[in-house]
């Protein structure tokens, strides 16, 4: 491919003496083919133009997980991303990962990220629920998430992590699912109990940013959905997230539409609803109060029937891992 000229706008960060981060932007020009990687360009810049530009790298093959950074707005692996995919009018913007403390330029402190992963006990536990029989299909779920290389790209782009320093984050939850779904795991229920606590799986905003960001197809949000299903099946339903979720299948059978009028009461209880009175009054100013009697859909009784059929003969509709093809 023919070489082209690109401008790299790189965020230069330096922790000053007082501990504050000093940030400035610096531009570098490189001439490269569009199918060269961002890492190729960084090596060119560091090797030939400015040795002080700092970033992490090791494997150059999307395996070690060290080169994640914000490239043209979203977090990607520098070694896997072609310049041509992300250049906008010939400009590529590089910033360090989000939601992590910056050390220098494009390098962040990955300690807090790994600490979150460690809180879910990233190893098999012995215990009463361990199954010694590992059948042919036993890893269909495990394989979906065991591709993770702990690069932190998902956590960097996570919209909940941006506003919540306590949210455990997508990678740790995907890792948790890897153990919950492993037949050999001995404490599945105990894990689900822990994951049902505040700031764990129920705090995910379901934005799917992690699904888009992950360079390895892990789809953390899909793992979170499956964890929630398993948690509710074990009866860990004592939280606003769970109660809210549990309202839907009831309402759909009752008439078809969601009863938004009683939803808040059912989710938050009386105390919680009273706390939200200010918000409710604010909405009432514009007449934004749902009807207590939502419209009933024609033939909604059919749904009660199919619900009962599926409760009697449960169908496994979980997505399974695709076969792993080496890249």
């Amino acid at each position: 491919m023919a070489e082209q000229s690109y401008t790299f706008r790189i965020q230069r960060n330096q922790v000053a003496g007082n501990g504050r981060l000093e940030t400035r932007w610096q531009e570098y020009k490189v001439t490269m083919p569009p199918n060269a990687t961002i890492l190729n360009a960084l090596e060119e810049i560091k090797g030939k133009q400015d040795g002080s530009v700092t970033y992490r790298q090791s494997c150059r093959s999307a395996i070690c997980g060290s080169c994640g950074m914000k490239i043209s707005g979203h977090t990607r692996l520098a070694c896997k991303t072609h310049i041509g995919w992300v250049a906008r009018n010939g400009v590529v913007e590089l910033r360090p990962q989000g939601n992590q403390p910056v050390l220098k330029d494009l390098a962040v402190d990955i300690g807090p990220f790994f600490k979150r992963v460690h809180t879910i006990r990233p190893y098999l536990d012995e215990g009463p629920e361990a199954d010694a029989n590992v059948g042919k299909t036993a890893y269909e779920q495990v394989n979906q998430v065991s591709q993770c290389i702990m690069c932190g790209c998902c956590y960097s782009d996570c919209t909940m992590a941006e506003v919540s320093p306590t949210f455990i984050g997508p990678a740790a939850l995907a890792k948790a699912f890897r153990f919950v779904s492993d037949p050999r795991e001995g404490k599945k229920t105990d894990r689900l109990r822990q994951l049902s606590e505040p700031h764990m799986m129920w705090s995910c905003a379901r934005c799917a940013m992690c699904v888009e960001a992950c360079p390895k197809g892990v789809k953390p949000m899909e793992a979170i959905v499956k964890l929630r299903t398993r948690g509710m099946q074990k009866g860990f339903n004592d939280g606003a997230g769970q109660r809210h979720a549990l309202a839907f299948h009831v309402d759909i059978q009752k008439g078809g539409d969601l009863n938004e009028f009683t939803l808040m009461m059912r989710t938050l209880g009386l105390g919680g609803t009273l706390k939200e009175t200010g918000a409710a009054l604010h909405l009432m100013k514009k007449g934004k109060i749902p009807s207590p009697f939502p419209h009933k859909a024609q033939g909604f009784e059919e749904l009660k029937k199919v619900y009962d059929i599926l409760e009697r003969n449960p169908l496994d509709v979980e997505t399974k891992a695709a076969d792993i093809v080496p890249e």
Binding site: V225, T229, A245, L246, A247, F248, H249, L310, V317, E318
Partner: peptide, 9 residues
């Protein structure tokens, strides 16, 4: 929500 509570339904 429904995909979480009752995936097949």
């Amino acid at each position: 929500s429904l995909r979480e509570t009752k995936p097949a339904f």
